[in-house]
Computed example of a mutant assay.
Amino acid sequence: MGVRIEQVVTSGIFSLDGGSWDVDNNVWIIGNDDEALVVDAAHDADAILAALGNRRLTAVVCTHAHNDHINAAPAVAEKTGAPVFLHLDDRLLWSQTHPEHSPAYLCDQSRLTVADTEIQVLHTPGHTPGAISLYIPELDTVLTGDTLFAGGPGATGRSFSDFPTIIRSIRDRLLTLPPHTTVLTGHGPSAIIADEAAHLDDWIARGY
């Protein structure tokens, strides 16, 4: 079977700025029957490893370093020998959750490959300084973490976040992708670029 994207939903706690919230996270597995890459290893390493099965894991990629997106990453990496990748600008957030582990670092326009399929790294800061989105042209899909959801941008009311920055990221890096591109998010349902682009001015006007 060719390259595909599978979803695993895990549940746990998001903690930041002294608050804690129950959350459900989308973990995405990109690959084929032989090898795969995990995006946002959240909460439950055993569930992620079970979904991987016997496939070789090439990497664990973090769209940003909020604890609910990275808390299972070291455990998945240790069980599989795969490296963990993160944008350099989120290193301080990463160290709040995993001070004893060091990831490898990505930058804008980095390229990753799994199952002979290229994944383009887009730096899309705003939700966090090092937030990234992962664009897969071959699959007409972009994985946006918590930068863009079905219905609006990610939250910017906590430390390390900024609303004008996330709007620029969405406008200049995501809404410029082909209109039919599917958006796979860090929480909740998927979206389509064209549908979200239609609401950009409304988000700006109300400061979302």
Rank of each mutant, 00 (worst) to 15 (best):
G2S: 14
R4T: 15
R4Y: 14
I5G: 00
Q7H: 09
Q7D: 04
T10V: 15
S11N: 13
G12F: 10
D17F: 08
D17S: 08
G19R: 12
G19A: 11
S20H: 12
S20Q: 13
D22N: 12
D22L: 14
D22W: 15
N25D: 06
V27A: 05
V27K: 02
W28D: 00
I30G: 01
G31P: 10
N32C: 11
N32E: 07
D33A: 14
D33Q: 14
V39E: 03
D40R: 12
D40F: 15
A41V: 12
H43I: 07
D44Q: 10
D44Y: 10
D44A: 08
A45N: 08
A45I: 15
D46G: 09
D46K: 12
D46C: 10
L49D: 04
G53T: 14
R56D: 05
V60I: 14
V61A: 04
C62L: 08
C62M: 05
T63V: 07
H64L: 10
N67C: 09
N67W: 05
N67A: 06
D68R: 05
H69S: 02
I70A: 06
N71Q: 11
N71D: 15
A73L: 14
P74N: 10
A75V: 15
A75R: 15
A77W: 10
E78I: 13
E78K: 13
K79F: 10
K79Q: 14
T80E: 02
T80A: 03
T80Y: 09
V84D: 00
V84G: 00
F85N: 02
L86Q: 02
H87D: 04
H87Y: 04
D89I: 09
L92C: 06
L93N: 02
S95N: 11
S95R: 15
S95F: 13
S95K: 15
Q96F: 13
E100N: 11
P103F: 03
P103R: 02
A104S: 08
Y105H: 04
L106K: 00
C107Y: 05
L112F: 02
T113H: 07
T113R: 12
A115R: 08
E118I: 15
I119P: 02
Q120T: 13
H123K: 04
H123R: 04
G126K: 04
I132W: 02
I132D: 01
Y135H: 04
Y135N: 01
E138P: 03
L139E: 04
D140E: 10
T141I: 13
L143P: 02
T144S: 03
F149A: 01
G151Y: 15
G151N: 08
G152A: 14
P153C: 10
G154E: 04
G157E: 08
G157C: 07
S159Y: 05
S161F: 11
D162A: 05
F163G: 00
I166R: 01
I167N: 04
I167G: 03
I170F: 07
T176Q: 06
L177T: 01
P178R: 11
T181I: 07
T185K: 05
G186C: 14
H187N: 07
G188C: 09
G188Q: 07
P189I: 14
P189H: 08
D195F: 08
W203N: 03
I204F: 06
R206E: 07
G207D: 09
